[in-house]
Design a protein around this nucleic acid. Structure first.
Lengths: 211, 211
DNA sequence: AGATACAGACCGGCGGTCTGTATTATTTTA
DNA sequence: TAAAATAATACAGACCGCCGGTCTGTATCT
């Protein structure tokens, strides 16, 4: 086999397979041989499309990041909602996405992987917080649905916390504990004039943490 | 050389050297050959005392954890302070310890290392929060210096946040940003009836983030 | 003819094992 | 009770399999 007419398919195959394997076994424990066996490609094929094993990891991470960013942007630009409502929508989407898209099952992998962890933290603090959560907070302040003195810090805290308690592996919890955390979270945001979690989202989170 | 009369010294030598190297170069990039070269021991010597490279890592982590725990316990058991004052002391010690003991320089290493990260998270959520921060919070509630409806969640948030913004590598910040974060943090704790950070600690944190 | 898309032998280095050896501790024996 | 035998300790270092990465070769397209 040579001079495949659709090399992009090969790239996608490598990416899909690698993502699955990284997820199952973790990055370090996934060897190139594993990817070779699963794709039935040769070492040369893989190294023709990617400079290194790490390059595959970064490409996988980028794909996931773009997916998330697209959803955040869509909500940010939606019309006819107050800032507080957009925040609630963002939260709802994040939860449902985690649930349906299997992202929840990726989180342990993300956190256990140093490079991903760094990327994730960086994307929260340098991308998600300033470019998505912060504008929405400012909108909410402008339309009166939110009143915060330090929106920059609040944006970071909201994202970091939501990220942390969504992690079912680091935080295996009973439904009661999950509800208590949601209550605490609502109490926290209430001082800024809004409630982040409605009953439906809380139910979804509880269901999500039980898996 | 054989049948050393003080094998514990060898163990300490390995631990000290490994800790230094892990800190400088990270765990993954530190090879056994590096440790062998630095200690002038043989591979056999190291594998006589440790089952694997990972076992060395865990031993290093344990030593550090014990050190931290001892300090937390000392403050928790101190007499004649309100709960809020103990929290302040805990925070002050953590900052000064980070500054003087070089722990700050270890944090990037800790966070970049998945196993340490998991251990650290676990120790915060399963050790530090329930066994140290939570009792102090309850003390504060009892003596009236703190009023929190969800002390469990508050303990976790305090520790997770303090851990996050103490990290200078993930969060390179200007002095102004650091002060704004401290203000936000005080505003956050003020709703529970106390201020966590006094001027001295804030100055120390600012100085610490500048290094 | 040259670029592309692979195939697969090959390499240095890594964590880990295994056998060997010198020294000390313990037990056995005279 | 002292010497001899045996076992256990504390290493030393050759050796092994595997891993990420390279390099050369080859078939197919433009």
């Amino acid at each position: 086999m040579a001079r495949n007419k659709h090399p992009e398919q090969t790239v996608q195959l490598i990416l899909d397979t690698a993502a699955k394997l990284f997820l199952q076994k973790g990055y370090d424990k996934t060897t190139l041989q594993d990817i070779i066996d699963a794709t039935h490609l040769s070492k040369g094929a893989i190294y023709h499309h990617f400079a290194s094993k790490e390059a595959i990891l970064i490409a996988v991470a980028d794909r996931m990041g773009e997916h998330n960013t697209a959803i955040l942007a869509e909500i940010r630009d939606r019309k006819g909602l107050t800032g507080a409502e957009k925040l609630r929508e963002m939260c709802r989407s994040a939860v449902l996405l985690s649930f349906q898209g299997g992202i929840v099952h990726m989180l342990p992998f993300l956190i256990e992987n140093p490079r991903f962890m760094a990327l994730q933290m960086q994307s929260i603090l340098e991308e998600a917080a300033p470019h998505y959560a912060l504008p929405i907070l400012r909108e909410g302040i402008a339309d009166g649905s939110i009143h915060a003195d330090y929106p920059e810090q609040l944006a970071e805290v909201l994202l970091l916390l939501s990220d942390l308690w969504l992690h079912p592996v680091l935080r295996p919890s009973t439904p009661e504990q999950v509800r208590a955390r949601c209550d605490f979270y609502n109490q926290f945001t209430r001082q800024y004039g809004f409630e982040l979690l409605d009953e439906d989202i809380i139910d979804a989170i509880v269901a999500l943490c039980r898996t």
